[in-house]
Design a protein around this nucleic acid. Structure first.
Lengths: 199, 199
DNA sequence: GCGGCATGTAGACGCTGTCAACTTAAAGCG
DNA sequence: CGCTTTAAGTTGACAGCGTCTACATGCCGC
């Protein structure tokens, strides 16, 4: 019996287990109503055990949102590294990766931006702003290449983020159906913004 | 199967009263936890009475979201009518009105786009798509004036909607603070898109 | 004037988030 | 090495929620 000497307490490291269980529950087909007691049940502990690690439900949700931001930033950074050098390619690649992340974790994405109680607090956390910083540096790189207009980079980055976030939300809510919005709506929308950014 | 809403019945026309009460509750300072029983309490009826008019909580929320879309479309149409004729002015005016609506009814706006249970169904309702149609016709008018590039109007409209919706969401979540995003971020973002749309 | 049916009420059920009191076992101290 | 402190987990309770069923009420068309 190998004991975990790194985790010096009672049963196991419940905090991590609870967090992982909760994250996994979000990945399931939507509609599962997310309940603290169900998390505890699946983690195999009593219904009040999570309270030893999270002040309340909102605290758990906030932490989950932050994990989501970490993952999103990681995915973006990683994906863009493999993209061609020119700005336009990076722009489209990042946008695709972003929307793909949201489509594969819709509940998580909604939690991150949905404005549930604790989530707003999460947005002020540095971990949540890494994704924005990523956009800023992408813009600035484009400016150095002479591909992006010389305007305040954070304003341009805001434009990108808003556009992609908006598209993502509309998509998640099922609004971007071809019969309503035409074919290639996403591509067209991204192109429109891109041309507004370009020098 | 005919609903008789205006005709006098038992107490009053509860459906409307419940709906109004619920809408009013959303306008209050955020944080009020929205509960069916509380709505009934404020409407002065028993806790189960609303079930005679709404199948469940989601149905009420859906109806509320639809009312929100009606109001939003009305506000946009009305505001833009008073704006100068040129496309850019209308674009900025509409954007400002849109964001103003959201800022003055944050909870309602979040309900409309938040993806709560019944809300997704609401998006497929024609009433919810009027706002999009409004954007489309604005774009087409701009194209007729030769101010907007000749591309599929619904794609361009999608770009507008996504951008403004994205900005609105970021704003509501408190992300557009000058120290993070720079000054005039909203204006800069809108300008970037506008230039991508223009011919 | 009467009976049906839409409208509203009362009460119950199982579930939830949260708290307080209790138990357990690892850690720290002499 | 034993004793105490105390963090980690359990149990049981409470109020409040959404929703269902059974019952009461009174407006309608006949």
């Amino acid at each position: 019996m190998t004991k975990q000497e790194k985790r010096p307490y009672h049963h196991g490291d419940l905090r991590r287990v609870v967090l992982n269980t909760a994250m996994a529950m979000l990945t399931e087909p939507e509609g599962v109503n997310f309940t603290l007691r169900e998390v505890a049940r699946r983690a195999g502990v009593s219904h009040a055990a999570p309270y030893k690690h999270f002040a309340d439900k909102a605290a758990l949700l906030t932490e989950m949102a932050l994990v989501g931001f970490d993952r999103l930033t990681a995915t973006l950074t990683e994906t863009v590294q493999k993209a061609p050098e020119d700005f336009a390619s990076k722009f489209f690649t990042a946008a695709a990766a972003y929307m793909d992340f949201a489509k594969q974790n819709p509940a998580l994405y909604r939690l991150m931006f949905g404005g549930e109680f604790g989530t707003i607090a999460a947005h002020l956390d540095p971990r949540a702003l890494n994704a924005f910083d990523f956009a800023v540096s992408l813009i600035e790189e484009g400016q150095r290449q002479g591909k992006v207009r010389e305007r305040p980079s954070r304003g341009q980055a805001t434009a990108c983020w808003a556009q992609i976030h908006g598209l993502t939300m509309l998509e998640l809510n099922g609004l971007l159906q071809p019969e309503k919005v035409g074919d290639n709506a996403i591509e067209l929308a991204l192109t429109a913004l891109l041309e507004g950014l370009q020098a």
